[in-house]
């Protein structure tokens, strides 16, 4: 059996093994028919909050995913709607960051002067936790929605900026010479030689950025509240509904993986072998 067939089987064994152990170690849940009304209200939990077993989470997942877009007012929206809000914020902030970081990174990479001049700013701004910007953003922008987007913007700009500059600066002199001997204009050189040459490095930066943005949005939405998957997690925690908390944690993981997979695909498509 090839390793490609063995690996998924081993994954499944691990999954079911772990779920089995988890299931066994949590006290059994009463079936819904036997619950008192009070117990139903508490989401099937006893007075003491406890970690729900995997079976409860699977049930929850089936229930949520069969109707992901319902909207029963501010505190009860389907998981699909919450994810959509988060994705909207991430993609807006991320796109704005890309619009600035890619051209600016190009400039920095092409010009040693710009690199030297901007380097101190980048070095100081880069290590700031994106959430540290939140109070300032809320004060200046006066809008929680826009502040969340700003936080995404500020956290995704650095990896893209640095990788673009690095990729552009590292383009082999030989290829630039090829452009020169073919009398290519600066603009054509940038688009036909430097951009494709630096593309894999630039995409690495974009991939790191989207990963960070997805990490940060959860925390940002916990702070600003209202909508989004981060708010959802926090809200369910306040409701002591741990089943929903665990379910949404898994959803965050899956969406993050999908985002990463997308960028990894693009990266593979632009990768070249020297």
């Amino acid at each position: 059996m090839s390793i490609n067939m063995k690996a998924p089987i081993l994954s499944l064994i691990l999954l079911f093994g772990l779920m089995g152990v988890w299931e066994m170690s949590t006290p059994s849940v009463k079936s819904a028919e036997n619950m008192t009304e009070y117990e139903m209200l508490m989401g099937g939990a006893s007075e003491e909050a406890r970690v729900p077993p995997p079976s409860a989470i699977v049930t929850k997942a089936v229930e949520e995913l069969s109707n992901p877009f319902y909207d029963n007012g501010p505190n009860d929206k389907g998981i699909g709607i919450q994810i959509a809000y988060s994705l909207y914020r991430v993609l807006t902030g991320y796109s704005m960051a890309a619009l600035i970081a890619l051209p600016l990174g190009f400039l920095i990479g092409m010009s040693p002067l710009a690199y030297k001049a901007l380097d101190p700013f980048i070095q100081i701004l880069k290590p700031i936790s994106p959430l540290a910007w939140m109070p300032l953003a809320l004060f200046i922008i006066q809008d929680s929605e826009a502040s969340a987007i700003f936080v995404i913007f500020i956290c995704s700009i650095w990896p893209m900026l640095i990788n673009t500059a690095f990729g552009v600066a590292g383009v082999r002199g030989d290829w630039v010479n090829v452009a020169k001997t073919h009398e290519l204009s600066t603009l054509r050189t940038a688009f036909q030689v430097i951009l494709p040459a630096a593309a894999p490095t630039i995409l690495t930066g974009m991939r790191i950025s989207i990963g960070i943005a997805w990490l940060v949005i959860v925390a940002a939405e916990m702070l600003v509240g209202g909508t989004g998957i981060g708010y959802y997690v926090w809200n369910e925690w306040n409701n002591l509904d741990l089943t929903s908390v665990i379910f949404s944690i898994l959803v965050i993981g899956v969406v993050g993986m999908l985002l990463d997979t997308f960028f990894s695909r693009v990266q593979t498509a632009l990768q070249y072998q020297e």
Partner: peptide, 15 residues
Amino acid sequence: LDRGVVFQNYSLLPW
């Protein structure tokens, strides 16, 4: 373009 160059290391664009 009046002077074509073949570089020592080929210098083809790898992509």
